[in-house]
Write a protein that binds this DNA or RNA. Structure first.
Length: 186
DNA sequence: AAGGCCTACAACCGCATCCGT
DNA sequence: GACGGATGCGGTTGTAGGCCT
């Protein structure tokens, strides 16, 4: 974002109906949230705003912390290495942004999702590659679909909570993804 | 210089999933 | 097992600022 407060929609929608503030966060709100979490720790998002003295919903507080205020969040441009990693992980995992983010230190799911939508998907399209399948565009969609299956006949199915058919525990999934990162799968 | 268009990204929303009772 | 609240995820929106004509 060009500035910290680009989304000038404060006041509208459900937030206004419930007396909660919406839209961009002020410096003061950031400080309140940061101080509270440093003191009390993460979690309890539902009750956090009230305890911290914020007129925000818990979801909004969590998002702000996760994507912006957390000390581990890396700011700045995504490097070529990171971009390459995102491409490889996306080819395998699809739009599992949180899983992809989990393999890229300092980057958030929201950041990666945004980067994908604004940079990488367009880049792939310009190269004649379908960003959904990572296969070259084909005038005949059914053939394209089949080709996708031929290239990866048994794609890992990862459920919402991160479980996977071929990796039924967290450790297996982790080593699986590590092998991907290390190019062993490709 | 002005106005329209485009890009980037923070933030919101709805739904899925988790977890305690 | 059913239920309800809390949390997490992914899709989408809205706007500031840059670019183009």
């Amino acid at each position: 974002m060009r500035s910290l407060s680009s989304r000038g929609v404060a006041g509208g929608g459900k937030g206004a109906e419930t007396g909660l503030k919406r839209g961009p966060w002020s410096v003061g709100e950031d400080e309140l949230l940061r101080e509270y979490i440093e003191r009390e720790g993460e979690g309890g998002w539902r009750t956090l705003p009230k305890k911290a003295g914020l007129l925000r919903c818990g979801k909004s507080c969590r998002l702000r912390w996760m994507n912006y205020l957390r000390p581990s969040v890396k700011r700045g441009r995504i490097s070529e290495d990171e971009e390459d990693l995102i491409l490889r992980l996306h080819r395998l995992l699809g739009n599992r942004w949180s899983l992809i983010a989990g393999r890229i230190p300092g980057r958030t799911d929201n950041e990666i999702k945004n980067y994908w939508n604004t940079h990488l998907s367009r880049k792939l399209i310009s190269q004649g590659i379908d960003p959904k399948t990572h296969q070259p565009f084909d005038p005949n969609p059914s053939i394209n679909q089949n080709q996708s299956l031929i290239n990866n006949p048994n794609p890992p199915i990862i459920h919402h909570n991160g479980d996977e058919d071929c990796c039924n525990d967290e450790e297996s999934l982790s080593s699986f993804l590590n092998s991907l990162i290390n190019d062993e799968m490709l």
